[in-house]
Amino acid sequence: MFTQVLQRLCRSIDFVVMLAGYFASFLMPFLAAIVAYEVFSRYFLNHPTIWAFDLSLFLFGYIAALGGAYAQQKKAHINVDILYLKVSPHTRRVFNLFSYSLAIFFLVLVVKLGFEKYEEAIEFDYRTQSEWAPPMFHFWIMMCVASVLFIAQFSRDMVAEIYHLVTGNPLIAPENDDNDEY
């Protein structure tokens, strides 16, 4: 019963994080298209846009931040694994509990400071420095959402590691997916 609750929780987090990861990746073609359009508009139409610079940077930020949790789900984040690969799976789980706590500590700070920055952005109507001057507040909401998803993914992974350490069995049987393809 308890196991099932945990499993359901983990699967729900996995699903939401995956959605965010897919959303971020769907923005990629738009990012390339906007930059290419700016080149086209400037060189061939002789009419540089005022919006492509900021819009491409916003999309870049969205892709980079929102994909973080999904990259953790796919265990794609880089670590120095010289010792890590040599220890037993059991020890590795203990190591992970430490690493994930450190990561969550930082991400909680990102959420806290990001939210303060969002409130400031609303209060003073912060915008970018360009002529187009789009508002900044949404960027900070996104940053908070991205970090909360990231925290959720790390917490879910910690729950799974603790479960495995305590019971000796994996919480969710590992799927046979090719690590190279996301």
């Binding site: 953790q72 984040h77 880089i78 670590n79 120095v80 694994d81 010289i82 010792l83 890590y84 590795r92 190591f95 992970n96 430490f98 690493s99 450190l102 990561a103 500590f105 930082f106 991400l107 700070l109």
Partner: peptide, 19 residues
């Protein structure tokens, strides 16, 4: 220490600096 334990590089650096 954090690198030896296999922590994700970027988040570990930030976490250490903030701690």
């Amino acid at each position: 220490v954090a690198f030896a334990l296999g922590a994700p590089v970027g988040l570990a650096l930030a976490g250490i600096a903030m701690g």
